[in-house]
């Protein structure tokens, strides 16, 4: 018995590359089939019926026909389009970061229902929650856990002593925290504050709902971001491309805020000058 020629599935579009004149190769992440590539024909033409349903960051119902090497998408219908992500510069950038990580951490055709739900929940929450920093950290930590890289945050990864509430170090190559005496022998460990460890542990052990209720200050948020980024980069053995973009964007915001601060006294002076006259 041969397999049926056509089949249905649903998944999130996590990557797209151009193919030929008007086609694309899409990477789809599905709960039941895992990640796979498929050809979407004609989607770069303006009259394509499928193009809008096959954009990045879209959860779609797909009909596919078995092809010689890659399967061909013959029909598509949006399930969730995550519209808020597509109307906001920051949200879109965060969404792209999430799907890039999903793409990097999954192997082809390995289904993982839990990881799929994690990605879906993260994209949904991005549309709703204001606590984006912690949402992304939750996603990263859970992604690591699913992929078998759960960082050890309770005891020193080298000597297995329970950690003391002092400045310890995080070592990406050891996959966890090193106590000060062990860290002295490890050149690539970065210092980590007690609070950062506490937040990371909280993210590791609690539900997304409770994590999103947490409030942390921006300095601590940047520190935790630095820790997870460093660990992800070490595991992937390369930069996560959208991280560079997020940094660019943040830098741009900072410059613009500074400009406003610089400009503000100017207008103030002008006003003063006017009143003096």
């Amino acid at each position: 018995m041969s397999t049926p020629r056509e089949y249905q599935t649903s998944g999130i579009i996590i990557r797209k590359t151009k193919l030929g004149e008007a086609d694309r190769i899409l990477t789809v992440y599905t709960p039941e089939l895992g990640k796979f590539d498929a050809v979407a024909k004609g989607v770069r033409r303006p009259k394509s019926k499928m193009a809008g349903h096959l954009e990045l960051l879209t959860y779609s119902q797909l009909t596919l026909a078995r092809g010689r090497s890659l399967d061909i998408i013959t029909g598509s219908q949006t399930i969730e389009s995550f519209l808020p992500l597509k109307n906001d510069l920051w949200l879109m950038s965060y969404g792209l970061y999430v799907i890039e990580l999903v793409n990097q951490f999954t192997a082809i055709e390995v289904p993982d229902e839990d990881l799929f739900q994690l990605a879906l929940t993260t994209l949904r929450q991005l549309c709703q929650s204001d606590n984006r920093d912690l949402l992304l950290r939750y996603f990263e930590i859970q992604l690591l856990q699913h992929s078998g890289y759960r960082p050890q945050l309770r005891e020193c990864v080298a000597c297995h002593q329970v950690l003391q509430p002092v400045n310890n170090s995080f070592s990406a190559s050891n996959g966890g925290i090193l106590c000060p005496s062990c860290a002295a022998r490890q050149p690539f460990a970065h210092s980590i504050t007690v609070n950062a460890i506490k937040v990371l542990r909280f993210i590791q052990d609690n539900s997304l709902e409770s994590v999103l209720k947490l409030k942390i200050n921006p300095i601590l948020a940047r520190e935790i971001e630095g820790v997870t980024r460093g660990y992800l980069k070490y595991l992937l053995e390369r930069e996560v491309k959208s991280v560079a973009w997020l940094d660019d964007l943040r830098e741009q915001m900072r410059v613009m805020v500074n400009k406003k601060v610089v400009n503000a006294p100017d207008t103030g002076d002008a006003e003063n000058a006017a009143t003096e006259v």
Binding site: P46, K47, K49, A51, G52, H53, E55, T78, S81, L83, K86, L89, Q252, M256, K259
Partner: peptide, 30 residues
């Protein structure tokens, strides 16, 4: 985001249904 502070009017081409299209195939965003 970059051009707005320059005090220049920034417009975007309208997005909607292409000519000759059938409504039932349109996606949510469009």
């Amino acid at each position: 985001h970059v051009l707005n502070p320059l005090g220049i009017r920034v417009t975007r081409l309208a997005r909607g249904l292409p000519f000759g299209t059938e409504l039932e195939y349109a996606d949510d965003a469009t």
